[in-house]
């Protein structure tokens, strides 16, 4: 039956009915003339003296130290320069930040860092790795704007889904993501070094993502020797991202 994504089974195997391209297109709930990859414009804010910038490798000397300082302030977990470069070198365009143009040095006041790659050889998964807004700049929609810019670009790049983790006590972060359409898919027991548990949040961008076949589990022993010692990394390693996650607002 074309025109639906109804699951049917035969011989115990899941069969997906063919869909035409029209049906594959991500659905947009809001009546708008905007293309799917610009939907975020509907909620993006432009407070006075704030400018949004898409990262570029040439900006590293000025802005990477500021990003690290901002993110490190809100996090107990430490990240080396390699973690930042891992994201920023491979997906510079998926990092957005906000600056305060009224300060003499046009200081960075909010940032989002993401990546986009195949998840266990299955869906093309966007991942929101870090998000932070400087105190005093919160409540102006900066985080929401940055995240939506990231999501829009992932949509333009044909992402199937977007994932992230957030601390269970971080009500603000969960509220933000849930208002954008994310759902909690699982809870991760004592995920963070401070002993707090986390929720994995997911957003599908196309129908049928749940049935895209994936590789089986990641072998925890594939971890580098330094990480093998670390229960937080080995524990519950069902997804690669599970050793890494941020969701601070």
């Amino acid at each position: 039956m074309a025109g639906t994504v109804r699951m049917q089974t035969s011989n115990g195997r899941l069969v997906r009915h063919a869909m035409n391209d029209e049906e594959r297109r991500p659905l947009t709930p809001t009546p708008t003339n905007l293309p799917a990859s610009e939907i975020g414009k509907l909620i993006q804010t432009s407070p006075p003296d704030i400018a949004y910038i898409q990262y570029d490798i040439s900006l590293e000397p000025k802005y990477l130290p500021q990003m690290r300082a901002l993110i490190a302030k809100d996090l107990s977990e430490p990240y080396s320069i390699y973690v930042y470069r891992y994201f920023l070198y491979q997906w510079p365009e998926l990092c957005f930040f906000a600056i305060d143009t009224s300060t003499p040095d046009r200081d960075l006041v909010a940032v989002v860092i993401c990546k986009l790659e195949k998840h266990r050889c299955g869906p093309l998964r966007g991942y929101i790795a870090m998000l932070a807004t400087q105190e005093g700049y919160r409540g102006k929609g900066l985080a929401r704007t940055l995240v939506s810019k990231g999501i829009d670009l992932m949509i333009a790049k044909d992402a199937d889904e977007i994932a992230l983790e957030t601390e269970e006590t971080n009500v603000a972060a969960m509220k933000l993501y849930e208002s954008l359409g994310f759902l909690r898919s699982k809870k991760l027991h004592r995920y963070y070094l401070n002993g707090n548990s986390a929720y994995r949040l997911l957003l599908y961008l196309k129908p049928g993502v749940a049935s895209i076949p994936m590789d089986e589990y990641v072998d925890p022993y594939e971890l580098p020797p330094s990480a093998q010692d670390d229960p937080m990394l080995v524990q519950g390693l069902e997804d690669r991202e599970e050793l890494f996650s941020r969701g601070i607002v």
Binding site: V5, P26, P29, T30, I39, G181, P207, A210
Partner: peptide, 19 residues
Amino acid sequence: QPLYSSDMMRYEIRMKPFL
């Protein structure tokens, strides 16, 4: 009505363990 995705896709996320 959240900005992204659709109720149908959210249903898919929720039902993923059972699909």
